[in-house]
């Protein structure tokens, strides 16, 4: 393909949205009238399309990795055809009776509620570009977290956060500490997350309310849960449900 340097620059700047109106019109005109210019234009369009496709492919890989972590927790009803309906109805009745029995039998003290509602936040924080030492250390800590080795994870995450403070690391550190029963440390982590960052504040508040429950401080838990229950999204339904129970 014949490539004129200035034409190529013009095409590149067009796709980078770096042209004024007059030059934009010039590009449009030449695409319609000049075959070799159109070829340059279409090649650039194709390359950008493939870059976007590759980008989607990478994001898809990331979502699949996340899905593997999250799907360990899901308990969904399988799809059943109509002939199973009588069994479903019977199972539902039994389910309601069992749930009623469990609800009456289980003492609703704050620690029990904590146990029922606490589920460590999944690791969904990918490393950015860092030095080899930082990346290795961080990866090991995150790996330990994923494996449920919260002792190693807490140590590693604390160091990783110290070296390179990021809200995601602090959220996981708080969760690791809470899993280990180090409630004051976890509380400190979540408070720092709320105070110092704009991200992950709802998640931090949810886990902070669980810290309060774990410590038996029902009143503070209620304030936090009420606040979360009033939000538009994220944790609202779970917070409302838990608020009802502690109330």
């Amino acid at each position: 393909m014949y490539t004129d340097e200035s034409d190529m620059t013009l095409v590149e700047r067009y796709f980078d949205a770096d042209l004024d109106d007059a030059d934009m019109q010039e590009v449009t005109r030449r695409v319609e009238t000049d075959d070799s210019f159109r070829a340059l234009f279409e090649r650039e369009q194709l390359l950008i399309l493939v870059i976007r496709y590759q980008g989607q492919h990478d994001k898809l890989r990331y979502l699949k990795k996340m899905e593997r972590h999250l799907s360990q927790d899901i308990h969904r009803a399988p799809t059943l055809s109509l002939r199973y309906w009588p069994y479903l109805v019977a199972a539902a009745v039994v389910g309601v009776l069992v749930a009623l029995f469990v609800w009456l039998a289980v003492p609703k003290d704050s620690d029990k509620l904590f146990q029922a509602y606490f589920k460590p936040y999944p690791n969904m924080f990918e490393p950015g570009v860092r030095s080899v030492r930082e990346t290795t250390q961080r990866r090991q800590a995150l790996r330990a977290y994923e494996l449920g080795d919260y002792e190693t994870a807490a140590r590693g995450l604390k160091q990783a956060y110290h070296d390179h403070p990021e809200p995601g690391l602090l959220l996981l550190l708080g969760n690791a500490n809470l899993s280990l029963g180090h409630v004051p440390e976890a509380e400190e982590n979540f408070n720092a997350l709320i105070k110092n960052y704009d991200d992950l504040d709802l998640q931090a508040k949810w886990y902070l309310s669980l810290c309060y429950l774990k410590q038996g401080d029902v009143e503070r838990a209620k304030i936090m849960l009420k606040e979360l229950g009033a939000t538009e999204i994220s944790y609202a339904s779970k917070a409302k449900e838990l608020f009802e129970k502690v109330n």
Binding site: K59, Y62, L63, M66, L70, I74, R76, P122, M124, F125, E126, G168, D199, L200, D201, L202, Q203, T231, E232, I233, S234
Partner: peptide, 28 residues
């Protein structure tokens, strides 16, 4: 955090914000 906050966070952020949305609405 409003819904438009989420949009602007994803616009200015990257993968992690997307992961948060993924986890948030997945079950439902």
């Amino acid at each position: 955090m409003t819904h438009n906050d989420i949009i602007s966070k994803i616009r200015s952020g990257g993968q992690n914000e997307l992961g948060l949305v993924y986890a948030e609405y997945r079950e439902e």
